[in-house]
Computed example of a mutant assay.
Amino acid sequence: MSKVLIIGAGGVGSVAVHKCAQIPEIFTEIHLASRTKAKCDAIAESVKTRTGITVPTYQVDADNVPETVELIKKIKPDLLVNLALPYQDLTLMDACLETGVNYMDTANYEPLDEAKFEYKWQWAYQERFKEAGLMALLGSGFDPGVTNVFAAHAMKHHFDEIHELDIIDCNAGDHGQAFATNFNPEINIREITQRGRYWERGEWVETDPLAWSMDYDFPEDIGEKKCYLMYHEELESLALHIKGLKRARFWMTFSEKYLTHLKVLENIGMTSIEPIEYNGQMIQPIKFLTAVLPEPGSLGPLTKGRTCIGNVMKGIKNGKEKKLYVYNICSHEAAYKEVGSQAISYTTGVPAMIGAMMMLTGKWTGKGVFNMEQLDPDPFMEALNKHGLPWKEVEL
């Protein structure tokens, strides 16, 4: 018997609940909570229709620790899965410590007033979780998440040392909208408009936002796409945990149309997180922009094409140089047909379910705060093939 409480009813939350419901022998009870209960109810209804599983739903303010504690005490879950916004990571970790419940999320904490993706705030919980005998698993999405596991898999089975790592994220899908983001617009835009950063010989090197690009030829007829260097949080933990790493970078594809819209919005101040006064109220322009952009969940039936996310790794095995590409390709249409969401939500929601499964089945155990690459990659890699995100590896 295992009971999971999922907090967050966006696209990723929806996929995770659907996928958990497909494995009732592991997820015997699934509870779903969010600030907006109506969103939870819509997901629960879809799950009931597709699987026959009943998902109880609740309203909760994840910023409010006492309120969250009350809900946890009522449900008594074995695991809390945080699929809310990164701003809520610390309050939910506090609630887990107070109630003695294991914790998992898909994205690292970010303060509201600064676009700063760092693990330091969550790593600071290491001793408290250890002393409480609890486990906190950080970043069980795709990137971060699967990309970390790909690196751990390569380290375990293919390399003695990995010297160079390029994580390359391509969304070759099209939703037909003038401008829209495939996950929470606020988080997405904050991520893209901050300065780029990569790991080089023991230190971080900064670049201007989207100043570096390269063309990469993606497999299986996706073809050549322009990729831009960005900072992404998994680089921070991989630089610590992957043996011999001399350089680590993260790349993402964007269309010219997307970047043109983004540049205009940035130039007129719409992407700013600095509050301005409007009608006697202080508002962040980016929050207003988020309100007028298409809801990411609405893009599911509109999006056609595929994603391709993977790691290109160069290193040494038995004294010889080796280069390996491990990747997944996911179809937007197939994801929508299965769970009613596009592939961006699917590629994050499935690993969230798998991370939860690893913890609930005891495949991954520990006391303290863990990043994905610190745990055995084999059962996770096996589960990816089984539950909708099959991977391939090619020597280059």
Rank of each mutant, 00 (worst) to 15 (best):
I286T: 04
I316Q: 08
M270G: 02
G176F: 08
N148A: 15
E234K: 13
I53K: 06
E338D: 09
E274C: 06
R247S: 15
V81Q: 00
G305A: 06
R128E: 10
S213Y: 11
Q22I: 01
T303F: 04
R197G: 03
S14Y: 03
E67S: 12
L289F: 05
I30A: 05
E45H: 10
P209F: 06
G223D: 05
I187D: 02
L262P: 01
N148D: 15
E70T: 03
S14C: 08
A115Q: 07
W199L: 04
N182A: 14
S237R: 09
T271K: 02
I26P: 02
G340T: 02
H175P: 07
M313H: 05
G176S: 12
I26H: 05
I283V: 14
E161Q: 12
W212F: 07
G366A: 06
F183S: 09
D174S: 13
A352H: 01
N182F: 15
E67Q: 11
K323G: 00
V69R: 00
A239V: 07
E393D: 14
K392M: 11
N108C: 13
Q126P: 01
P296K: 01
A9P: 05
P296E: 05
F117C: 07
L384M: 13
A21Y: 06
S2C: 07
L79R: 00
L259I: 05
P86W: 03
I26W: 03
G349D: 08
E295R: 13
N328E: 11
N279D: 13
N182V: 14
L112A: 12
M270N: 03
F250N: 02
P86C: 09
G310E: 05
C308N: 07
E25N: 11
F254Y: 15
N108G: 12
K130G: 12
K246M: 12
G319T: 09
A352K: 01
D61I: 05
S46W: 00
D378Q: 11
E224K: 14
L5F: 04
F218K: 06
L238M: 14
L210V: 08
Y87F: 15
H232L: 14
L83N: 01
G355L: 10
A33C: 09
K263A: 14
M230H: 09
I273M: 06
V47M: 08
Q374L: 08
C227R: 00
D208G: 11
A239E: 08
A152G: 05
V292L: 13
P24Q: 12
V146C: 06
R128Q: 14
H31L: 09
